[in-house]
């Protein structure tokens, strides 16, 4: 815990640059399990931060607390320096299992966030079509989720999160149910998309490569109880393209560094 604070203190940032802040979050379940213990993390505006750790480290729990889907047992979540107590329009969630309605078309699924807000049908479908296109699903508007591959389903899930125009995207292991090749493609497309949309992303994963490849900041969590062990900023240049990145020495070093950190907590 102290080491994390030290790292964070070592590189102070302007308050205005912090979009989400988790302060002393702890979570204890009814059966006494301590899922999270005093977790404090700052998420910078416009950056992609991953929460990385072995299963059981509470990373998804933390993300759901930030989303307002789960109550914390202690601590608070601040978005734009205001404490939040539940889901809000400035945060949108992308689900691990896609959470698409099997009985609704891609178009209705993508527009569903706006439908819940009462946006008129024509307007919300216009917006939905736009994002369906930008995630690369054009032409699939009237298909049903069962007709789509896992990768396409998650594109729809991402489009749905984009339609509501939230500043913060919360992505819960979004690519873990998708096969390896498609996952790489989705990672690249996500980065591409984020260059156009000004979003701050909090991304949960258990894949070290995925975390390093995608992130501006990687926060390492460990389990029993879930707590932050380290925060890393890989800091390589993404401009060179995906192939170059995956050969970049700093990319490889960051992966090694994280692995050597994490493996001492595996038993």
């Amino acid at each position: 815990m102290t080491s994390v604070t030290a790292i964070r203190m070592a590189e102070p940032v302007e308050v205005a640059d912090i979009i989400v802040k988790a302060v002393d979050i702890s979570k204890r379940y009814g059966d006494g399990t301590q899922a999270l213990s005093d977790v404090t993390i700052e998420f910078r505006r416009g950056e992609l931060t991953t929460l990385l750790g072995p299963s059981g480290c509470g990373k998804t729990t933390l993300l759901k607390i930030i989303a307002g889907l789960l109550p914390a047992s202690g601590g608070e979540v601040r978005v734009d320096n205001r404490t939040v107590y539940g889901p809000g329009p400035e945060r949108a969630f992308v689900f691990q299992d896609f959470a698409l309605m099997p009985w609704a078309s891609v178009l209705r699924n993508v527009a569903f966030g706006l439908e819940l807000r009462g946006t008129p049908k024509a307007e919300r479908e216009d917006i939905a079509r736009r994002y369906i296109k930008s995630v690369g699903l054009a032409g699939a508007e009237h298909k049903f989720p069962s007709e789509l591959s896992g990768g396409m389903r998650q594109r729809a899930g991402l489009a749905r999160a984009l339609t509501v125009n939230a500043d913060v995207l919360l992505m819960d292991e979004p690519f873990s149910a998708i096969d390896e090749q498609m996952r790489r493609k989705l990672q690249e497309d996500l980065l591409e998309l984020l260059r156009e949309e000004q979003k701050s992303v909090i991304f949960v994963t258990h894949s070290i490569e995925e975390a390093v490849y995608l992130s501006d900041q990687v926060v390492l969590l460990t389990r029993n109880p879930g707590r932050v062990v380290k925060s890393i900023r890989p800091g390589f240049d993404r401009g060179a393209g995906p192939e170059a990145v995956r050969r970049d020495q700093r990319y490889l070093d960051a992966v090694d560094d994280i692995w050597s950190q994490l493996k001492q907590y595996l038993s």
Partner: peptide, 20 residues
């Protein structure tokens, strides 16, 4: 997860029942 999805997009209980 569908119920959670509705909540994350701030759907009401009524919307949860009728739409999901």
């Amino acid at each position: 997860s569908l119920l959670e999805m509705t909540r994350s997009f701030m759907g009401t209980r009524r919307q949860q029942v009728v739409k999901i």
